[in-house]
Design a binder for these strands. Structure first.
Lengths: 335, 335, 335, 335
DNA sequence: GATGAATGAGCTTTCATTCAT
DNA sequence: AATGAATGAAAGCTCATTCAT
């Protein structure tokens, strides 16, 4: 009962030719662009495609093909008419409409994209532009860290976060799409900071064994100074699609290849028994070692200085618990 | 059931964990994005695709599919990592490379494009924006009509109206004291226009039967040309004190006595069986007749020309569906 | 990077063979079925397929193929082992898991389906079984009708409905998936009732002209007796996917073909000028005629008896407003 | 832009409006479902497909696609019309016809199948259900483990647990005083089992180094066999008074003194560098080491055998990553 | 003992409106 | 005059828990 694909192509062909013929309509005599008229026409066409396709996948497919062809034609036409600027606005309108009808992607001419991208000021592309308006965002994130740490993510309420941050609940939702998004942002930013800190230390040039000692020390210090943050990152909260610990893990894993390379290259004297194959396991295992020493510290109510554990950790990870005398002194330093 | 590690090295290639590792290569130790590394990798992949495809068309096809999938993945993962800015630079690099190898187009996620386009400063897109206060009010009302028609009054947001009108939300409230007031103004103005249009036609002097024919034709044409407006007027939205349909009805009713007088006076030959008592019922009933013919047209997706229904409507309202031969011709006129 | 389809087939092939081999595991020595074990294994397989497919469509496709093959095998195996009953439970488990992972459909052996369907008690298939537990549901729907009519759907709150129905808010959500679902159910049931009522009248055998007179009278009486219900049905509330008026329209349209056939066949004397082509327009137009006579009545505060309008309506629809003397009397009956 | 009516007669074929008209044919004037009409129409369509296909395979293929699309459409529309019961009868009819024409399978919507299966009386599926109270408790705990692992404790609902366990929700509350109590019980029992298992191994008399090797191996095996359980224990869910990880930790800590004593006493040759002071740190750190190797395994989708990691873990914990040749062989054993 | 309909406190989220800039 | 971040009341919905049958 539904039409065959061929029929649709014809159907659209007729409409799109029409659209092309009507381009003139979207521009006044003075060359100004009538966004509204164009938008309406576009919406009508997309709706028509939707109605004439069987399922969502088919709709997306056809709409994509149709749209990219049409955009190409219109853009060319505008270039011919000497109004390339208008094509950007037209393009923006098109993209907005696509979003609205739920089209996930569109095919676009590369030269046109180039043109658009070059018109974006350069500073927008460098690093993040989180400067002025982030004061409030930071306040909300700080409050969220406190509240989530205290009560646990699920028991915490957005009300409590907003109250602690001293803003209205609605403001939380201006900065974060949802409670979940707030947590994710918090973790993402924190994870980055944590790992940047370690990366910074790793960039200092020294012998590998020394490097390991320094990193362990730095890491322990970091988590001792930010226990709430660290605990939240490791808290393993199940979210819609992921799980908080995985967010951190993903960050870690992104940096692992570079790290691995560096470690293997630093191992000039070949004293360290880590190979390409065992690196991941040893690295993550060692991470876990520190993680549980931290956890023990928490369980003891932070009644001692976590930094005191550094020698034992270092000793264990470098030499294990068996054998040689090289590290006999280490154990005495311990509490 | 479990596979040995060797077996799954390849398998892991398809897992996201691997992707992280790959993306990791594009970032320096300090977390900054290495455009060069990405460009190199991209160029290598594109070259490889070119070498493995027979003709240009095939190359373009494969490259497009590959690239859009790849970009989507990387962009998603960068978002997860909290580096959406990097994805814009990466995207720019990708487009540049595509241009270089002669790829004419790429498929891109609409949400991502939206993000990019929003970062282009407004003045680049606006050309001139210097309108009298009244123009702005009109723009807002036009936008409101579009948005309300699309989503329904209650589901529509003031944000959407303001956005489509290209003004700030606050400006909407400068011109209209509330969302409801905006709707009411829209309806009041439109109702007047609609009824003025009909009144204008009624003022032409002719025989009553002819007048009726002309009015029906004009009215059908009017609503066929302004379906959104008409639909909104008839939409029966419940407001604080009234109901949108009543606004139109009130306008109509205000003019009814004059109309009635004119109709009765035009009925010189007394061929029309309308009395003072039955006028209202017949008039509104006939209005309703057209209303549902219009509604039928909407439900069929406006896929035929509403004006084609004029003969049937006229015939029915003038002669009913029964009897005489006086209107035998009518059915032939119809389609 | 993602695997080719062929690879997946092999991958699944390996797993599924395994599953088959493991069927024994799901049954204890006494022949009882270990639903849990089977469910776990199934879930693992589905998850594995999801992880090894690129997009959702591909996942659905593969999962469907895999599942239907496997089910067939297992069911055969169980039949061989002489335990066909177990296959129903196994099947139920499979369907549940498919729902959970978001698979929209599965392919199934017809003979097996036959077996299952025959085990459903017959009375379940006849008409609806809305008997005992519907007392509360009815109460909620009644309350909803009142509240929605009074305040309009959007201004009405679920709290108010629950309160008026004398139940807790949660109970509303036990019977209806959402506020929208409540409205839809209300309209669906009411529309059916309304149209059944008319259909009933239409089934009485009489001359067409007489039939039309009777139906109009009955219809006007019906809406005069249920103005709230009728108003709600016509209220044109925009919902997520439809619009309330369309719900009624769809019901109407479902019955239209039968109605059309009957009308044309009843038209023995060929006095009625309705053809196959004009039927829809005339029918819906006439419906609209009555609709606005009803609306006029509402606007006049129901200060007169709507039934008094029946003669005028009938006269107009049968003979129009022009010409003959046959209906001269009708107008005098009017108020 | 607009098409003439003639042009769109075909077009409408694809619109849902048409579908309504078609479905309308299956219903008698009184609204009851006409099985015969539907069966006739179905048989005609299937026969037509058979005649238009070359071989049997092609017929089956086409018929399946056609039927599943058709059924889906009709079922959806019947749901909209508020007649879901009719869809079951219709479905039964369809299956019967498929059997008759020799179609071996049909594709069906899972949600619809779910509905049908739920209408089969329970006793048909249950066979025997006569278990001691303890069996029921176990069944609930098993179900809880599955559900909590899958969705996370907070996202999991008691309904889901009860359903999976095959008991009523109230029964869950007979055995556990709250959802939290259910989780705690689960963890307490499991933690005990886990630790008893390790204790058992520790009670075997052997040299300490050997003991450590054996314990690591046993532990890895245990968690590889019970990943859901282990994950739940480590999941760090924040409860009213505690936190799930703490429950395990408390169990562990209760046994630590005895363990410590035993370890130190076994260290006859004093080859192990663990003192009274460092025992806790080294023990928990090592535990964490394994924990993260396990976590890595999870993140890789359990695509390799966790036991393969035992040599690396053992080597690291015994000898560290630096120095001597004593463990040169370790890397070869790996993978 | 088992059941599952009923409950309602409490949550997240939306969005019309305001108002400092 | 124009802006758009901030507001917070108000709404829809969930689900652990209870309890009559």
């Amino acid at each position: 009962m539904k039409k065959k694909k061929e029929d649709i192509v014809e159907l659209l062909g007729g409409e799109s030719t029409q659209l092309f013929a009507e381009i003139g309509r979207y521009f006044s005599a003075d060359g100004s662009f009538s966004e509204d008229e164009f938008r309406r026409s576009l919406r009508a066409s997309l709706t028509s495609i939707r109605n004439n396709t069987d399922d969502d996948a088919s709709f997306r497919n056809h709409a994509d093909v149709w749209l990219s062809t049409k955009l190409r034609e219109i853009i060319d036409h505008l270039h011919d008419r000497g109004m390339p600027e208008a094509s950007i606005r037209l393009f923006k309108t098109a993209v907005e409409e696509c979003s609205r009808v739920g089209l996930p992607k569109v095919s676009l001419p590369t030269d046109f994209l180039n043109e658009i991208l070059c018109s974006i000021p350069h500073h927008k592309l460098d690093k993040e532009r989180k400067d002025t308006p982030n004061e409030k965002k930071t306040r909300i994130m700080d409050a969220a860290l406190t509240v989530f740490s205290q009560d646990g993510y699920h028991r915490a309420t957005v009300d409590a976060v907003a109250h602690l941050a001293g803003v209205a609940k609605g403001s939380v939702y201006r900065h974060f799409k949802s409670k979940e998004d707030l947590l994710k942002s918090l973790l993402t930013v924190s994870s980055s900071e944590m790992l940047d800190y370690v990366n910074h230390i790793l960039s200092i040039d020294m012998e590998l064994e020394e490097q390991i000692r320094v990193v362990i020390k730095a890491w322990v210090e970091f988590i001792a100074n930010n226990p709430d943050l660290y605990r939240l990152i490791q808290s393993n909260i199940q979210l819609e699609n992921t799980n908080t610990r995985d967010i951190f893990f993903n960050h870690l894993f992104t940096r692992l290849p570079l790290l691995k390379e560096r470690v293997l290259s630093l191992n000039r004297k070949n004293r360290i028994r880590i190979t390409n194959l065992t690196f991941d396991t040893i690295f993550l295992g060692s991470y876990g070692f520190v993680d549980w020493v931290f956890y023990k510290w928490l369980r003891f109510g932070k009644t001692y200085d976590l930094r005191d554990e550094v020698p034992v950790i270092t000793e264990m990870l470098l030499h294990g618990c068996i054998g040689g005398t090289s590290s006999a002194g280490a154990t005495e330093e311990k509490i």
